[in-house]
Design a protein around this nucleic acid. Sequence first.
DNA 1: GCTCCTCTAGATAGATCGCTCTAGTGGCGC
DNA 2: GCGCCACTAGAGCGATCTATCTAGAGGAGC
Lengths: 191, 191
Amino acid sequence: MPAQTKERLVETGADLFRRQGFSGTGVKQIVAEASAPFASLYHFFPGGKEELGAEVIRWSGARYAELIDLFFVAGADPVTATKDFFAGAAATLAETDYVDACPIATVALEVSSTSEPMREACAEVFESWVARTTECLRGAGVPRARARSLALAILASLEGAFVLARASRSVEPMHAAGDAAAARVAEALAR
Amino acid sequence: MPAQTKERLVETGADLFRRQGFSGTGVKQIVAEASAPFASLYHFFPGGKEELGAEVIRWSGARYAELIDLFFVAGADPVTATKDFFAGAAATLAETDYVDACPIATVALEVSSTSEPMREACAEVFESWVARTTECLRGAGVPRARARSLALAILASLEGAFVLARASRSVEPMHAAGDAAAARVAEALAR
DNA sequence: GCTCCTCTAGATAGATCGCTCTAGTGGCGC
DNA sequence: GCGCCACTAGAGCGATCTATCTAGAGGAGC
């Protein structure tokens, strides 16, 4: 099954990029861990590592967007959603030895000043996450502009908490960020 | 002056690591841009690139801590401090073409799962930032535990906003995060 | 059987990686 | 002068990097 090979390359790349970063991961390591033929990488991604990277970003971004949708579903209470989402992120971090954080943050910081195609892919992914969260907040009665600002603040808190938590190997930043974010959402709803 | 060479290596490394990440930057590039002799790097840092990396993290962290102190000085109003700090970060981002964000976040995410010495250096730096911010909040009357949680949330917001802002090349996330953080601080003081 | 096309196979190019090596320079104490 | 030490100098090691190369396997359509 040829389609599987391409998929395995993307999934393996996603896993390695998240853990080691983009430049820290070699293409040989990707094909080896994906049990994929070396030439297949350049068959499916003629643009080489950079094209694979962009695809990995979009794929990981889409998967994480599904997770966001699971919590911030239209009609759900955004305060509960926020609390649960951050608690879930904390639990996942602890379970995976602080490896399974944001799937694209590491790459995003690495490539923002060095690869325009990959930077754009990251920007699109983040924007889609913000849009989803914004919609959920609007559905709960938060005005448009305020909902977007709040969604940005929630996701910024999440991303930053991932940075602090990974470095300190502690879930404390995630809980603190989650509490603050949930309180902000509650405040926005109370108005 | 021999001390200058070591200092130039650290400063140049800090600049390059922030922009391209740790694995994305070669030692040859560092010594070239620092106009330093190649052998000097291994004279001053016998541990090689990793030791230089750890030193860069601590040095950058100390410099940024000074910046934090400039805003979150004991006795200052934490709400104003928070607002000004985020506004300053946004202005710096825009001025430097979104290069000058957090000096260690990129490296922190890269090395958290691959280099224990560098991960520890990042953890220490973040902890020092949190401690400073916590002290300022306590000085303004916020109870100890709450002050620490709030400080963590503020710094998480900042770090995450850097991630989003760099990827989207926009200061919008920084302003949203700053507004949210300042509101949280105001709420904590009002109690 | 034959062609066409997708995908596999892996050697290898050419550059760059981090790092080590020997040699040497310049200044200080004596 | 002489020994000592901190630092400079840069060639070059083996390994690894990304990417390309020619060759061929396997299946679908005819």
